[in-house]
Design a protein around this nucleic acid. Structure first.
Length: 597
RNA sequence: GGGGGUGUAGCUCAACUGGUUCAGAGCGCUGCCCUGUCACGGCAGAGGUUGCGGGUUCGAGCCCCGUCACUCCCGCCA
């Protein structure tokens, strides 16, 4: 029997047609005299009817059908009898009266039900172990379809704009500057290793030197770092690089891309251009370089107001060069003692020494600290924070960076509390795209006691700041941009350095990479730049995150066909796994682990 | 590396402060009945070493220690 239609496509238009369907038994409703089998394939479900008066052999065979049996049926599409239509089903107007049934393969009872009442609630480990069953669920099948549509929209868009998709190697060279890498031993080069690329960064720059001019790739990337809901060890980026462009060109191209993707995935036109915000403004107002601008609760600066304060904590912060800032969680004065404690713990975990707060309840300021405030200070608070009954004010007083971070995090936490309480409404279908720009080119890393690239060492500086590179390196802005959506970093990129001497200076003088190491790691790049490297720049967008957002999920495992667990394990195939000693010998590797094997 | 959460029937969960609803419910599964169901319905039934290993106790699903798995977060992710 050869399939003529997908289950989900039958409508009244096909009434009277003889059709053959294949698929899985989704639900069996055996009424004794008559059997209904809801048949499912990737497109949806259709009700098939087995009637003994119409065709006794297939009716008899239908008694033996169970969940997830794979069958083929031949029958006639007919209008359902009046009153038995099902408005909840896309195919609910019609049904297939079956003449013939073939069982292509029986199925054991699945470990969880393949529907939203079973599979969606099943434990994550079970779903991952039986991923092939989980992916049969309509919701997961929809995610796969949407991801495909998005990838196609990306390719069509770039193709239409003169880009070439070029594949770059998966076996790359170790460059331990950034994320921890996956290493691959070389059998034919004993003791030497490849690394899987964290991104195709260096190759795409070489493609620019090669004159490709406009490159993109839907590229697999690998990072051996700890996992999160939005981080997998292997993930997919929309990787882009262009020659002879400025930042403005890049903004326009990516805005066009995202508009095309939103149109393909949701049929929505998103307004462009996107707003832009300097890094420093994002930090001052939202305490984050990826602010969710769908709601307020902005950071308010009170440094000047408390510069002479009797309250030693605030005064001390200001005296030692720090700042005093606060957020107003409107409507959260009802917070319990426990919730305040949790907020305090959060603040402490991000470096605060404590958490000063004011609850505005019953016309009073309930707070352990207001007794230290002067009338002028109180007045300033009321005005700047627009304090009203029911508010909860949270303070940060410390070094600028710590206050940003602490209040930025608290802002998100209290927003969640207010959402749960119903006071704050944040729409999931509101798309606040934002370019965050003017990042510092380099930041001082206290841990390693040296300067590190904020983005990566190939980022060009903003031209007018270049003179500060030697004197005040942290004041230099990079030509770096991040694209942010609703508090999620979708991607980032930069205009690159294309002059060999500038690149060398950044490696050696700014980042203090010893010349011999810079040479062995990046020598080919410096050399390439001496042969007429065009000015160029690029960006990379997290494709999985983009898919997750458009699928309405906060977890990228929902949009990756075969993801790994938080411990980077594939539960379906049980990988990683031990290997045979011969394999290790061939690779010249000796293990140094307890309980190996 | 650190912190939080979870682990009881095939699945999702309940079982109050440790003790007569000490192993339960819904779904699923098995059998029988049922010719218009679509969360089909009815009757009957099977199914458990409460993740694993110790410990405390007269008594542990519940408390303690260890361990494993899953998950969320911090660090990390140029």
């Amino acid at each position: 029997m050869k399939r003529t239609h997908y289950c989900g496509e039958l409508r009244a238009a096909q009434v009277g047609q003889k059709v053959t369907l294949t698929g899985w038994v989704h639900v069996r409703r055996d009424l004794g005299g008559i059997v209904f089998i809801e048949l499912r394939d990737r497109s949806g479900t259709t009700q098939t009817v087995f009637d003994p008066q119409h065709n006794k052999p297939s009716w008899e065979l239908a008694q033996s059908l169970r969940s997830e049996f794979v069958i083929a049926v031949e029958g006639t599409v007919r209008q359902r009898p009046a009153g038995t239509e099902n408005a909840k089903m896309a195919t609910g107007e019609v049904e297939v009266l079956t003449h013939q049934l073939e069982i292509l393969n029986p199925s054991e009872t699945p470990p969880f039900q393949i529907d939203e009442s079973g599979g969606a609630q099943a434990g994550e480990d079970l779903r991952l172990q039986y991923r092939y069953l989980d992916l049969r669920r309509p919701a997961m099948a929809r995610n796969l379809v949407l991801r495909h549509r998005m990838a196609k929209a990306v390719r069509d868009y770039f193709d239409g704009n003169g880009f070439l998709e070029v594949e770059t190697p998966i076996l790359f060279k170790s460059t331990p500057e950034g994320a921890r890498e996956y290493l691959v031993p070389s059998r034919v080069n004993p003791g030497k290793f490849y690394a899987l690329p964290q991104s195709p960064q260096q190759f795409k720059q070489m493609l620019m030197v090669a004159g490709v001019d406009r490159y993109f790739q839907i590229a697999k990337c690998f990072r051996d770092e700890d996992l999160r809901a939005d981080r997998q060890p292997e993930f997919t980026q929309i990787d882009v690089e262009m020659s002879f462009i400025t930042r403005e060109d890049m903004y326009a191209i990516i805005e066009g891309l995202l508009a095309a993707v939103w149109l393909a995935a949701r049929g929505e036109t998103i307004p462009t251009p996107f707003p832009r915000m300097p890094f420093i403004e994002a930090m001052e107002r939202f305490g984050s370089d990826k602010p969710d601008t769908r709601f307020g609760i902005e950071l308010v600066d009170l440094t000047k107001d408390f510069a002479q304060s009797q309250f030693k904590v605030f005064r001390g912060a200001v005296d030692s060069g720090g700042v005093v800032k606060a957020i107003n969680a409107k409507g959260l004065a009802s917070a319990t003692q426990g919730q305040i404690e949790t907020l305090t713990e959060t603040a402490k975990s991000f470096g605060a020494k404590g958490l000063a707060f004011i609850k505005v309840e019953g016309g009073e300021w309930k707070s352990p600290i207001v007794k230290f405030f002067s009338d002028t200070e109180k007045k300033a608070l009321i005005e700047k924070l627009k304090i009203e009954e029911g508010d909860l004010i949270l303070f940060g007083a410390d070094k600028r960076e710590i206050v940003w971070e602490v209040l930025g995090r608290l802002r998100l936490v209290v927003a969640d509390l207010l959402k749960k309480q119903g006071t704050l409404k944040v729409r999931d279908d509101q798309w606040n795209f934002l370019w965050v720009v003017d990042f510092p080119l380099i930041t001082f890393d206290r841990e390693s006691n040296r300067y590190l690239s904020t983005h990566h060492p190939f980022t060009a500086a903003v031209a007018e700041d270049l003179s500060l590179l030697d004197s005040e390196p942290t004041k230099v802005r990079g030509q770096h941009y991040d694209i942010v959506l609703n508090g999620v970093e979708l991607g980032g990129g930069s205009i690159r350095i294309h002059k060999p001497d500038v690149q060398k200076k950044v490696f050696e003088d700014v980042l203090k990479i010893p010349p011999d190491i810079a040479q062995s790691r990046f020598g080919y790049m410096l050399q390439a730049f001496r042969y007429g490297a065009p000015p160029h720049g690029g960006i990379a967008l997290g494709f999985d995150r983009l898919c997750a957002i458009l699928c309405g999920s906060t977890n990228i495992r929902d949009v990756i066909a075969f993801p790994k667990t938080a411990k980077a394990v594939d539960l379906m195939t049980s990988s990683p796994s031990e290997v045979e000693s011969k394999q290790l010998r061939d690779l010249h590797i000796k293990l140094d682990v307890e309980d190996a094997g």
